[in-house]
């Protein structure tokens, strides 16, 4: 008797019996994907740089140095350590503009994902839970939005609302939202008839409780993965709108807008064109790498294989 008691009190045994917490299990699968960890590290660096931009950036993003127009980066002839990535056509430090630009891109991604996730999940939840006519109606509307190429619809919406960063974000959220609606609806439809949902319904749970507390938490995995992809897609779309002159307006140091401004110098100053695009590529790539890792960690179908 005493022997059994002392065994149960042994901390090692007790530890082994508690299942790993959700977070540590998640980290176990996420960290097995090396690319995902690299993506996470790069993303955290970009996030840090964006938050502390005024301290990290060597110069102001808007001060024009008339004596140093189109100065090449430091490793080219004529470059200097004062402006590591060179200067643009009006003498602004490119590195500083890129650092401040990270703020815009991450902010755009965050706002777009928040807007489209909240609206998309709500609408998808309603469609998948209630089914019937309301479902048909919602899905037809989503079909209509999806019948347009997303960038074209965003472009036209911005033309209606007026060019600018805020309107670009609204437009991109709107064209992104059908993906969340469809995904939530599909997940809700498979969960809805499962025993645990029927069980809590029988136990007297109300509609809202069933929708938000019983069903929704079990649909989150694909939504998180999609949100990551939407984050990177939003950054790309916003940069594309900026590039077309319909997103953030100059002199905002948004990466797409910087590219649009740099286009005319394409033949004589390659660095003005190269670095903003590289910044977009690295950021989007880091987020997509993380997305792949999240999918491995959260998708139960792939997990055990």
């Amino acid at each position: 008797m005493t022997a059994i008691q002392s065994k149960a009190a042994d901390p090692k045994v007790a530890e082994a019996k508690t299942p790993p917490s959700g977070l540590s299990e998640f980290w176990f699968y996420f960290s097995r994907n090396k690319g995902a960890v690299i993506g996470l590290v790069i993303f955290l660096i970009i996030l840090f740089v964006a938050i502390f931009a005024p301290f990290v950036a060597p110069h102001s993003p808007s001060i024009q140095n008339r004596e140093l127009l189109l100065m090449p980066p430091v490793w080219e002839q004529g470059g200097s350590w004062g402006h590591i990535l060179g200067t643009d056509a009006v003498g602004r430090d490119i590195l500083s503009r890129l650092i401040y630009g990270a703020r815009f891109s991450l902010f755009i991604g965050l706002v777009v994902v928040t807007l489209s996730v909240i609206s998309g999940v709500l609408i998808g939840l309603v469609a998948g839970y209630f089914r019937g006519r309301i479902d048909t109606f919602i899905m037809r509307i989503m079909d209509i939005i999806l019948a347009f190429p997303s960038l074209l619809l965003a472009l036209v919406l911005v033309a209606v609302l007026g060019p600018g960063l805020l309107n670009a974000m609204i437009a991109i959220s709107l064209v992104n939202q059908p993906h969340f609606v469809r995904l939530t609806r599909a997940a809700v439809m498979t969960e809805r008839t499962k025993d645990y949902v029927v069980g809590s319904k029988v136990a007297g749970a109300g509609t809202l409780r069933l929708m938000f507390l019983t069903i929704l938490p079990n649909c989150l995995a694909p939504l998180i993965v999609q949100a990551t992809l939407a984050f990177s897609a939003a950054i790309l779309d916003a940069a594309a709108l900026g590039f077309l002159g319909m997103g953030a307006q100059p002199p905002t140091p948004e990466w797409g807008t910087m590219l649009a401004e740099a286009r005319e110098f394409i033949q004589r100053a390659w660095w003005v064109v190269t670095f903003p695009g590289l910044a977009i590529l690295i950021t989007v790539l880091a987020i997509n790498l993380m997305g792949d890792g999240l999918r491995d960690a959260l998708d139960p179908k792939l997990k055990r294989s």
Binding site: G35, G256, R263, I266, Q267, V273, I280, L281, V284, N288
Partner: peptide, 25 residues
Amino acid sequence: MGAALVGYSMPIFWWGLLLIIFFSG
């Protein structure tokens, strides 16, 4: 798969400009 992920993350308007710089310029 690495190349595919880069391609998937590519801002194509910038990619086009790079190709112009290299192949045309």
